[in-house]
């Protein structure tokens, strides 16, 4: 282990600790702001640690991306009325999911389009793009509904369950096929496309009032996608932060639906026959 690796791993460990402490403080009203600052510091430590990675040879694109992202992200956070917060969280979420998905796609592509991908790594990459892609479109639909670009009432059509489940099943079949034999670029990209379509059909039938629960759930999926990225590229801070996020997002969505007096499974599977009676 070189000195550089030790430094990077130390930064990742520190970042993970900061994330856990931050989350803990965020559940206590008096310390919530402090908790957020700890989490932000953790993110900064993780970024600085990553920049030391020996694989990085050219910092121009990194700096350009960081600068452009800050320029777009800053007004997204600052010039937004408080009432529009949930949809802003959803759209900001979509960007995070785009990042996770693109990392997965690029990883698959640069390893000889699947030619040099091992089975375990393919499973991780598959999970990553599946969760990532359905979070992209799901978050965008949530944003559209809350922003009233789309009808906020539940949109259902006959045979919807069959279509949704069919797409999901097809994506799973492709996933299994890829794990058995990863060198199938066509199957991989078809799986990404199916996951994107499934994200739409997952959120479309859910009413606008239930969106916070859905956003929190998508949050959990994005966390799982990050975790899968960690498995694929062997990075512990991704695994830890992703697992924290995946578990806490899931619990939070259950707590929220309980607080809103809604059955969690109804919100989740609203499309599967229960939505009209429930609302």
């Amino acid at each position: 282990m070189t000195a550089r690796t030790v430094l990077i791993e130390a930064a990742y460990l520190l970042a993970s600790i900061l994330f856990i402490l931050g989350l803990r403080s965020l559940t206590i009203p008096d310390r919530a702001r402090r908790g957020m600052q700890l989490a932000a510091l953790g993110m900064l430590v993780a970024i600085v640690g990553t920049l030391l990675n020996h694989e990085i040879v050219d910092y121009r694109w990194i700096l350009a991306g960081l600068a452009l992202g800050s320029v777009i992200g800053y007004p997204l956070g600052v010039y937004v009325p408080m009432t529009a917060m949930p949809q802003r969280i959803a759209i900001s979420h979509m960007f995070g999911a785009i990042a996770a998905t693109l990392v997965g796609v690029a990883e698959f592509y640069s390893l000889g389009n699947g030619g040099q991908v091992g089975r375990a790594q393919m499973a991780a990459l598959g999970f990553e793009v599946l969760f990532g892609a359905l979070t992209i479109t799901g978050s965008f639909m949530a944003f559209g509904k809350l922003q009233e670009l789309l009808p906020s009432r539940p949109v259902t059509f006959p045979g919807q369950n069959v279509v949704s489940l069919g797409m999901f099943a097809a994506a799973l079949v492709l996933f299994v096929r890829l794990v058995v034999d990863p060198a199938h670029p066509a199957a991989f990209y078809a799986m990404v496309a199916l996951a994107l379509a499934f994200g739409v059909s997952l959120v479309l039938p859910i009413g606008g009032a239930d969106m916070p629960v859905v956003i929190s759930l998508l949050n959990s999926y994005a966390g799982l996608a990050s975790s899968a990225t960690g498995f694929a590229i062997g990075n512990n801070v991704l695994i830890i932060a992703g697992a924290l996020d995946g578990a806490s997002g899931f619990i939070l969505s259950i707590i929220m639906s309980r607080a809103m007096n809604r059955s969690f499974s109804n919100v989740l599977f609203g499309a599967f026959g229960a939505a009209p009676q429930a609302s």
């Binding site: 957020m36 993110m43 993780a46 932060a241 996020d245």
Partner: peptide
């Protein structure tokens, strides 16, 4: 906040 943390995939993107 967890939404912001889930953007940890930034670490993978940077590399």
């Amino acid at each position: 906040a967890t939404n912001a943390i889930s953007a940890i995939s930034l670490v993978g993107s940077l590399v």
